[in-house]
Nucleic acid binder design. Structure first.
Length: 958
RNA sequence: GGGCGAUUGGCUCAGUUGGUUAGAGCGUCUCGCUUACACCGAGAAGGUCGCAGGUUCGAGUCCUGCAUCGCCCACCA
């Protein structure tokens, strides 16, 4: 690179050619990141392109990650930064390996969550969604979407995400819409979707059904109430129930539902109650008679052993009811107020009713006792409201047939989880899977592709109508479709201002909106409900690639490589993608599931906006730089592990970026105004300067994979200084290790290894020695600059997937000083896999010895409080038992002299050649360092110091 | 009620298949503004790897039990 490319990111920021300003003394991410990102993006490096058939690239295995689409509800949080970091590392790594690479981003419409935030916004204006009507409300939500989509994309960019923005997908785009409809239709035709009245989880606040997975279980301190049910035996003369005076006591945590009881159950094995089975008891106050029956599900130990059975409001009771053919009495409205079935409690809120009932029962002597009791309360994961099990007509997906193939592929290893312990968790859930309630009574989402024929079955369509013009009818008018039409309400008005239920109507399931009913009626009403957001999410790996179209993208990228997401959505999302992926294609959606943990704050609290413990990733980027954040996130925990994010760790990341910056700055300044030629070993072990190494040359080591490791490069480069043989051996070893770690998804470990190498080996030792050589004007040894540049350049490549901005910036500057590297940018430069031919175990051991000698002398100096600037005389004894060590010491003498400030330095062959009195000695591997102490320090002063230390120690011991 | 994870120097964590003196960052102590970096350099202190057993020539690393914390799943009303 002799000509600075004007588009390169170094322009204006500390480039290195004569006409460019010098690099800043400290790395400033803010002066770099946006510019580097723009450089990448405008050059199109993120674009996931299908290679030309027959090209070299086409022979390589494609790598594809579909990004988990963040909710459009708001801005990204720190968990997204972790997602981006992991996925970007994998993507960049594969891109550098030369693989065809696609990281496909998207955004999720997040039905219930987004509807909630927009409703909150409306509430501030004093409006509800019903004031707007469905169409207007949807428009408002779209406004929200248009506002947040660019914000979210921009946040990803600030984090350095190299995703293919040109293909970003939204879950309500036409493609995913079509995917959803095709799936629904196919499932319907296959008998996998049904509509039915079941006991579902109802959120009285969100006014919708939610699935089992969207219910959180909170432990609460509550009470266990013991209620007496009087026994009835026949009728009195006046026809009134005859009370025997006995009673049966049941224990309950939900007394307000007793008005919906249709039985009392006991365990058939419970001797206490054998005689009670078949008798009749009466509900207090409302005076309904119900039977006592036996059911295995009853725990004898709990409460009194007798349980009130409320099939309409409790899942267990529902099942008992099914077994015994009990009637279902629904006592609540959708807003969790009591209905007419609750008699005198009609219209009261469920908890208000509870208080009233308990008071009444107590007054009438039916409340036997109250015990404190901790219980699990189901709450809505979106709003925290206590969930109510309610009977309701909903759409369900039959899961068992879908689950089995999803179980098999994991058992057979076609999909692997990282870490693998999550496979068991996944399998356990899949094996016990239950049907999925997919309908939501929301306005925002994929509307269920079902229509009812209003004309043909008009008398069966029940419409709940809010008069748009006159007074808001409250309660809304309930009528059949035809009744409304007869009253002059137009079809359009009904569509806009009513909700309806096609309970008894035949659903017309279709992919495209049907024109008319098959029976010939003209007016169709589409199902009100929308689908659970996770229904469309489950199709994500397909729909993002163009399915149901048979697109080239789908053919090429599917199945994708890695699904990377949080372990908290294995069931909600991962499992459904697997099931639906196999259902549609017969093939898995991805071969690896990489799961990351939860990011917590320094107190270990989950980062959450609602808790006020959220951290805006952009604030962190602003303060420490994106690279620091990425480094910290990836090194703070392994796969599946939770982590605490702290300022201290972020500082460590920032400092590392700065270290890299300064090391590179120094190397560049040492090279000065010239350039160095690309260092390479040639076949004879000479340092060769090969001009014009082509791009293919440069990538050779990565494109033919392991093959290169077998090229037996010469290692006994005895003419090369030991530190060069050492550092080259180390950097190639590092590359092999990093490659291995990345393959095992040990991303943090890979990053830490580069950190260790760059800081503790390259900067601390190789640069320091190189300085000595460069400054030694008498030296006849070859210049260390080619090796210096080579090792640094390799290190930048190895680190680029993690610390993406600073490495690109530095690489661009460094490469201008090196002839023979033609890669146009680090992001697309080859990723080193390690040249095993450069391994030089002897050099590694020798260098270690030199380092140990320096450390030993430094240690002695520090121990003896030798003034920092002062040189000490030292003897280094080469042990005859270690061959070659004398030569090593002779060669290394100048470094020892400078680095340990040891001069005059005597290299001797026998301990006898060194003084024995008043010396400090360090015995090392085949080497002994001897430092004469005479005159090094003031004996009296030292004595005083030591005495003082003793006194302090004694005082402390006392 | 099941299951999983964690328990390593003051703090936060690494330690992947059991093998030489258990590592890092931050903090602490002693020095040092030496021409890459004080977002730095040199040196040092600090851990019987939760507890109790067991397997092994050898265990932080495997097995058993226990304890504490966290998470997930589960129809004890």
């Amino acid at each position: 690179m002799t000509t600075a490319d004007p588009q390169r990111p170094t322009e204006g920021a500390g480039g290195t050619t004569n006409d460019q300003p010098p690099m800043a003394k400290a790395y400033d991410p803010r002066a770099t990141e946006d510019r580097v990102y723009q450089f990448w993006e405008t050059r199109g490096y993120f674009k996931g392109e299908i290679p030309e058939p027959g090209s070299a690239k086409a022979a390589r295995e494609p790598f594809c990650i579909i990004m988990p689409p963040p909710n459009v509800t708001g801005e990204l949080h720190i968990g997204h930064a972790l997602t981006d970091t992991v996925e970007d590392i994998l993507t960049r790594w594969h891109r550098m390996l030369g693989d065809p690479t696609l990281w496909l981003p998207g955004i999720d419409h997040a039905g219930i969550a987004t509807q909630n935030v927009v409703e909150k916004q409306l509430a501030k204006e004093g409006l509800s969604r019903h004031d707007l009507g469905r169409d207007e409300f949807e428009k408002r939500v779209w406004q929200w979407v248009h506002r947040y989509r660019p914000i979210i994309s921009n946040q990803h960019r600030r984090l350095g995400a190299s995703a293919d923005w040109s293909n970003e997908v939204f879950t309500l785009d036409d493609g995913p819409q079509s995917a959803v409809r095709v799936t629904f239709k196919k499932m319907w035709d296959d008998g996998l979707i049904y509509r039915g009245e079941r006991l579902i989880n109802w959120c009285p606040r969100c006014q919708t059904a939610v699935s089992d997975l969207e219910v959180d279980h909170e432990e609460q301190q509550g009470s266990l109430w013991y209620i007496r049910y009087p026994v009835v035996d026949g009728k009195d003369a006046d026809g009134a129930p005859h009370l025997t005076g006995e009673h049966l006591t049941v224990a309950t945590t939900r007394p307000e539902t007793y008005v919906g009881d249709t039985a009392v159950a006991v365990n058939p094995k419970d001797a206490r109650y054998t005689d009670w089975i078949g008798r009749t008891v009466m509900l207090p106050v409302i005076q309904r008679e119900i039977p006592v029956l036996a059911d295995e599900a009853i725990e004898m130990e709990f409460g009194t052993g007798a349980v009130k059975v409320t099939p309409g409001h409790d899942p267990t009771d529902f099942e008992i009811g099914q077994r015994h053919n009990l009637p279902i009495v629904n006592v609540m409205n959708k807003d969790a107020t009591m209905n007419a079935q609750a008699g005198p409690y009609d219209g009261m809120d469920r908890f208000e009713a509870r208080a009233m009932m308990l008071r009444d029962l107590e007054e009438l002597g039916y409340l036997e006792k109250t015990e404190p009791h901790t219980l699990q309360v189901g709450t809505c994961s979106r709003c925290g409201t206590i969930i109510e099990p309610l009977m309701s007509w909903q759409w369900f997906v039959k899961m068992k047939p879908l689950a089995q193939p999803g179980i098999d592929v994991v058992r057979d290893g076609k999909i692997k989880f990282v870490p693998d312990r999550f496979e068991r968790i996944y399998l356990n859930w899949m094996e016990n899977i239950r049907d999925w309630c997919v309908s939501r009574q929301l306005w925002w989402g994929h509307r269920i592709p079902v229509w009812y024929s209003a004309d043909d079955d008009g008398d069966k369509i029940i419409v709940t109508f809010r008069d748009p013009d006159g007074e808001a009818t409250d309660p809304p008018r309930v009528a059949t479709y035809n009744e409304l039409r007869a009253d002059g309400v137009s079809h359009e008005t009904i569509i806009r201002h009513a909700t309806w239920s096609g309970v008894d109507a035949t659903p017309i399931v279709a992919i495209d909106t049907p024109e008319r009913s098959p029976k010939g009626g003209g007016h169709l009403l589409q199902e009100n409900d929308v689908l659970d957001t996770w229904f469309s999410s489950g199709l994500w790996p397909l729909s993002t690639l163009g399915w149901p179209g048979q697109t080239p993208e789908l053919a090429y990228w599917y199945p994708t490589s890695v699904m990377e997401t949080g372990y908290d959505i294995i069931f909600l999302w991962v499992s459904r993608m697997i099931m639906l992926g196999i259902y549609h294609t017969g093939d898995v959606p991805y071969s690896t599931v990489y799961l990351h943990g939860t990011v917590r704050n320094e107190q270990g609290k989950r980062m959450s906006k609602s808790l006020g413990t959220g951290v805006d990733p952009l604030d962190v980027v602003e303060k420490y730089g994106a690279d620091a954040l990425r480094y910290t996130l990836i090194t703070s925990s392994g796969a599946g592990g939770d982590m605490k994010l702290s300022d201290q760790r972020l500082e460590a990341g920032r400092n590392f970026a700065n270290k890299l910056w300064n090391a590179t700055r120094f190397v560049i300044s040492m090279i000065g105004e010239q350039t160095v030629e690309l260092f390479e070993f040639d076949a004879k072990g000479q340092t060769a300067n090969r001009k014009g190494a082509t791009k293919t040359d440069n990538r050779r080591q990565t494109t033919d994979g392991e093959q290169t490791s077998n090229r037996q490069r010469p290692t006994a480069n005895s003419h090369l200084p030991v530190e060069e043989r050492w550092i080259i051996s180390r950097v190639e070893g590092l590359a092999r290790s990093v490659d291995e770690q990345l393959r095992k998804f040990e991303l943090g470990e890979a990053a830490k290894q580069v950190y260790e190498f760059v800081w503790s080996e390259f900067a601390d030792w190789y640069i320091e020695i190189a300085k000595i050589r460069v400054r030694d004007e008498q030296s006849t040894a070859p210049s260390p600059l080619p090796v210096l540049a080579y090792v640094l350049e390799r290190s930048l490549r190895l680190l680029h997937p993690v610390m993406t901005f600073v490495t690109e910036e530095l690489w661009q500057a460094l490469v201008q000083k090196i002839d023979g590297i033609d890669d146009e940018a680090l992001i697309v430069a080859g990723f080193p896999r390690g040249e095993s031919g450069f391994t030089d175990a002897a050099a590694e051991r020798e260098m270690e010895t030199l380092i140990d000698v320096v450390r030993a002398i430094r240690n002695i100096r520090a121990e003896k409080k030798v003034e920092p600037g002062k040189f000490v005389e030292a003897y280094i004894v080469a042990d005859a038992a270690r061959p070659g060590v004398r030569a090593l010491l002779d060669a290394g003498a100048p470094y020892i002299e400078t680095l340990a400030r040891a001069r005059p330095l005597h290299i001797v062959d026998a301990i006898a050649d060194a003084p024995r009195d008043q010396v400090a000695t360090a015995v090392l591997d085949g080497v002994t360092a001897v430092v004469p102490l005479a005159g090094l320090f003031d004996v009296e002063a030292e004595r005083t110091r030591l005495n003082k230390q003793i006194a302090e120690a004694e005082a402390e011991a006392g």
